[in-house]
Amino acid sequence: MKTSLWQTFALHLDDKRPGFARGPWFTMNAVLELDGALDHSALAAAFDELQRRHDVLRTEIVDHAQLIHSAPTAELELVDAVETHAEVPLAAPVRLRLAGNRLALHLHHMVADPVTLWTTLDELATLYSAQRTGAAVPPPAAQYADYTLNEAALVERQRGSATDWWQTRITDAKPCPQPPLQPAKPFAYREQLLTNTELAAVDQRTLQQRSTPLVTLLAALAAGMTPYVGAGETLVFATLFSKRDRPQWQRVLGPCIVPSVLAIPRDGDIAAVREAVVGCSRYARFPILEADVPPRSPFFEYVPQNWPSGYDFGPIHASVAAVAGPKDTGLADILGIRLRPTTDNTLTGHFSGDGTDWTESLVSQVCAGLRDHLLS
């Protein structure tokens, strides 16, 4: 079977930067804290059954195709200690490691998204409990192959209208050029942007404006970036949209995300940015590699805080101790901006890039402008 839109785009990124998406650090990771000891044999059996139930956990990406292995490719690993990040080979895209009262799940990002991470842990806990009690567990509602086929059909059905819309929003809208290229050092760092009190005030204003955090943050980011980009009408960002927009996709394992763009009006007000975001999401199922996206458009992503309260492995409760996306291996090129609220209700940003247009000092000035706009 052919790769999905997300997988195709990730392979394209890897072609540009070998090892970025095919490498073993391109992973989704979670560590659970257990309040008791798990039965190793029951956990191993549950993990084996989990892989048998979901084709995507036995899927290898080879030459732009999804190849499904007939048998599970991974076994439970009993180790002395677990870390948040772990290498996961693309040929065996899932790892489960147990060290005392800590359980770590690692999924290759080519076959998983954040929802997959949480849903996998939830089903693992259910299967473990069933191993102990003998209870039956209903089969999955769908496989990732079903999602991929449906996605391909939607792309073809919407191709004409999507092409026209992106032509209007990008090619005809005079995108703003990025800052000129210059020699500079690559960078990657995290920074707190808003305290919990400041974030609460921004959230309240967002509700009053009948908007969303994504729209509010995009409008503020545009205000922070505008002084440093060239003349034009539109700021263009690469991004990802979650597309679990049918009941059967809500719990399917696999990356139900679409690489797309956010094309927002320069200095646009909240209403204009909101209208642009709604349209971008509506027409997101379009092969982004075919769109006339300006080169080196920054990547932007808002990641809501959605840690679950925990999981019950029979009588053992597991709480989330740590979560992480792909490990920074220094292979990113364009400016990447990821904003997320933390568990203590502050707003944190992760910024990375090769520094040749958006330098670290310039990004710091953008952040200052973003804060000023949010708190004004």
Rank of each mutant, 00 (worst) to 15 (best):
W25C: 09
R22C: 05
Q365S: 14
L221H: 13
P315G: 09
P294F: 03
N306K: 14
P138T: 07
D267K: 12
H350Y: 15
G369H: 03
L121Q: 08
L149K: 09
L181Q: 14
N345E: 08
R244S: 02
P255Q: 08
R102W: 08
P304G: 00
R251N: 13
A318I: 05
E156P: 11
R340V: 03
Q248C: 13
Y283E: 03
L5F: 07
S319C: 11
R53P: 07
G349L: 04
L117S: 05
A271F: 07
R97Q: 13
W249S: 02
G36I: 02
L193E: 00
F237P: 10
V111H: 02
I61V: 13
D55W: 06
A45Y: 03
G36M: 01
V303N: 15
T359C: 10
E233C: 11
F9D: 02
N345K: 09
G254R: 04
A99P: 13
P294L: 03
M110L: 13
P89W: 07
L207I: 04
T356L: 09
L67G: 04
E75Y: 05
E75N: 13
I170A: 06
L181G: 11
E191K: 10
A92H: 04
L347F: 10
H64A: 10
D172P: 13
L199N: 03
Q365V: 04
L221N: 10
G36Q: 02
H373S: 15
Y128C: 06
L107H: 03
Q178K: 10
Q167I: 12
Y302W: 10
Q51Y: 11
T133C: 06
P298F: 02
L262G: 04
V366Y: 12
V31W: 12
L154D: 15
K327Y: 13
N345W: 03
A141V: 14
P140A: 07
E275F: 11
C256N: 08
A21R: 00
V229I: 10
E233G: 15
T84F: 01
G36C: 03
W25H: 10
L5S: 02
P18V: 01
T234L: 03
G232F: 05
D164W: 14
A71F: 05
V137P: 01
H12I: 02
P259I: 00
D267E: 11
A112T: 03
G330H: 04
H106S: 09
A92Y: 04
P72D: 02
R132A: 11
R58F: 12
A231R: 15
R190G: 12
L235Q: 14
D39G: 11
Y302T: 04
A276F: 12
A162V: 00
Q208W: 10
V31F: 12
A284E: 02
E156W: 06
L331V: 09
T84L: 14
T84D: 02
F9Q: 10
C280E: 05
P341S: 00
P259F: 00
A71N: 06
E123L: 09
V111I: 11
H12K: 13
D357C: 11
K2I: 07
L105W: 05
A238Y: 08
T8M: 06
R274G: 09
V363L: 06
F351S: 02
F351P: 07
S281V: 04
F26A: 02
L76E: 01
H109E: 01
H12W: 12
F241Y: 08
G19T: 01
